[in-house]
Simulated assay, not measured.
Amino acid sequence: MASLLYVCVRPETGAADAEHASFRRALGVDVVDRLNLLDEPLDLTRLARYRGVVIGGSPFNVSDATKSPLQRRVEADLERLAQHSIDGGIAAFFTCFSIGVVTRMLGGEVANDTPESASATVIETTPEGDVDPIFGPSAPALTVFTAHKESAAAVPEGAVLLATNATCPVQAYRVGTHLYTAQFHPEPTPRDFADRMTFYRTTGYFDPDEFDLVQGQVLAASVTEGAALLRRFAEHFA
Rank of each mutant, 00 (worst) to 15 (best):
A2R: 05
L4G: 02
V7I: 13
R10D: 11
R10Q: 14
A15F: 10
A21T: 15
S22E: 11
L27R: 03
D30Y: 12
V31I: 15
V31Y: 14
V32Y: 01
L35T: 00
L38P: 13
D43K: 00
L44M: 10
T45W: 03
A48K: 03
A48G: 09
I55M: 08
G56Q: 06
P59Q: 11
S63K: 15
A65K: 13
T66F: 15
L70Q: 08
Q71N: 12
Q71V: 15
R72T: 09
R72D: 03
R72G: 04
V74F: 02
V74W: 00
D77G: 06
E79G: 13
R80W: 06
R80Y: 08
H84D: 05
H84L: 09
S85L: 10
D87V: 07
D87F: 07
G89L: 03
A92Q: 06
A92W: 04
F94P: 02
S98W: 01
S98T: 12
V101P: 00
V101Y: 00
V102I: 14
M105Q: 08
G107S: 12
D113P: 05
A118G: 05
S119C: 13
S119A: 12
A120M: 11
T121I: 11
V122H: 15
I123S: 09
D130R: 08
V131C: 08
D132R: 02
F135M: 11
G136S: 11
L142R: 03
F145H: 06
E150N: 07
E150F: 05
G158F: 12
A159L: 09
L161R: 04
L162K: 01
T164R: 06
T164A: 09
T167R: 13
T167M: 14
V170R: 02
A172R: 00
R174P: 06
G176Y: 13
T177H: 15
L179M: 11
L179N: 05
Y180H: 04
Y180T: 03
P190Q: 10
M197P: 07
F199C: 09
R201Q: 06
G204Y: 06
P208R: 01
L213R: 09
S222R: 13
V223M: 07
G226T: 01
A227V: 02
A228M: 13
R231G: 10
F233M: 10
F233C: 07
F237A: 05
A238H: 13
A238S: 14
